[in-house]
Structures are given as C-alpha cells and as structure tokens.
Computed example of a mutant assay.
Amino acid sequence: MFLPHGTVMKPALRFTGPADPQTPYMYHCHLLHHEDEGMMGQFVVVEKGGAAAVGRTPHEHG
C-alpha cells in the first residue's frame, strides 16, 4: 500500500487466533531508512480487558 509522505494511518485489524501477551507481532516498512521514522515496531495482542506482559520476552534480542 502506498501512502504519500505525511499521511497518518491507523490500521484496523482483526486477530482471530489466540492472544498471547508475551509474543509480540512486528510491523515494518521494507525501506530500512524508515525504521528511524517509526515505521518499524512490535505490538502484542491481548484478550479484551487484558494487559500486555511487562518486561523482556523470550523473543527479544539484546
């Protein structure tokens, strides 16, 4: 999907699989210089009313 420079987008997704507050999903742009502009990150999916796990997960590097 192409978005012109300066466009703000709020993705709307439905996750039908099991939610796991300790297993992050990743989103990214395929242009590496966009990483510094917020076009790469992680998020977790939790059950309604749930909370994300705090701290490091087994999937983090570092």
Rank of each mutant, 00 (worst) to 15 (best):
Met1Trp: 04
Phe2Asn: 14
Phe2Glu: 09
Phe2Met: 07
Leu3Tyr: 06
Leu3Pro: 03
Leu3Thr: 06
Leu3Ala: 12
Pro4Phe: 04
Pro4Arg: 05
Pro4Trp: 03
His5Gly: 12
His5Pro: 15
His5Thr: 05
His5Ser: 11
Gly6Asp: 00
Thr7Ile: 01
Thr7Tyr: 01
Thr7Arg: 06
Thr7Lys: 05
Val8Ala: 08
Val8Asn: 02
Val8Glu: 03
Val8Thr: 13
Met9Ile: 01
Met9Asn: 02
Met9Gly: 00
Met9Lys: 08
Met9Pro: 00
Lys10Leu: 02
Lys10Thr: 15
Lys10Val: 14
Lys10Cys: 01
Lys10His: 07
Pro11Val: 10
Pro11Tyr: 02
Ala12Val: 10
Ala12Asp: 08
Ala12His: 02
Ala12Thr: 09
Leu13Trp: 07
Arg14His: 03
Arg14Ser: 03
Arg14Asn: 05
Phe15Cys: 03
Phe15Tyr: 11
Phe15Met: 02
Phe15Leu: 02
Thr16Asp: 03
Gly17Asp: 07
Gly17Lys: 03
Pro18Tyr: 02
Pro18Thr: 15
Pro18Arg: 01
Pro18Cys: 10
Ala19His: 05
Ala19Glu: 07
Ala19Gln: 09
Asp20Tyr: 04
Asp20Ala: 10
Asp20Ser: 14
Asp20Gln: 06
Pro21Lys: 03
Pro21Phe: 08
Pro21Glu: 08
Gln22Thr: 15
Gln22Tyr: 12
Gln22Gly: 10
Thr23Cys: 12
Thr23Met: 11
Thr23Ser: 13
Pro24Val: 13
Pro24Ala: 13
Tyr25Asp: 11
Tyr25Asn: 14
Tyr25Glu: 11
Met26Trp: 13
Tyr27Asp: 05
Tyr27Pro: 01
Tyr27Thr: 09
His28Trp: 15
His28Asp: 01
Cys29Leu: 01
His30Arg: 09
His30Leu: 02
His30Tyr: 07
His30Pro: 00
Leu31Phe: 12
Leu31Lys: 15
His33Cys: 08
His33Arg: 13
His34Arg: 14
His34Val: 06
Glu35Val: 15
Glu35Phe: 04
Glu37Trp: 00
Glu37Ser: 08
Gly38Gln: 02
Gly38Ser: 04
Met40His: 12
Met40Leu: 09
Gln42Phe: 13
Phe43Trp: 13
Phe43Val: 14
Phe43Tyr: 15
Val44Pro: 09
Val45Ala: 02
Val45Trp: 00
Val46Arg: 03
Val46His: 01
Glu47Cys: 03
Glu47Gly: 08
Glu47Tyr: 03
Lys48Ser: 13
Lys48Arg: 13
Lys48Thr: 14
Lys48His: 14
Lys48Ile: 04
Gly49Lys: 08
Gly49Gln: 05
Gly50Lys: 04
Gly50His: 05
Ala51Thr: 15
Ala51Phe: 04
Ala51Cys: 04
Ala52Phe: 13
Ala53Pro: 06
Ala53His: 11
Ala53Lys: 04
Ala53Phe: 13
Val54Arg: 15
Val54Asp: 10
Gly55Asn: 12
Gly55Ser: 11
Gly55Glu: 09
Arg56Ser: 15
Arg56Gly: 11
Pro58Met: 05
Pro58Trp: 10
Pro58Gln: 12
Glu60Val: 12
His61Arg: 11
His61Ile: 15
Gly62Ser: 14
Gly62Val: 11
Gly62Tyr: 05
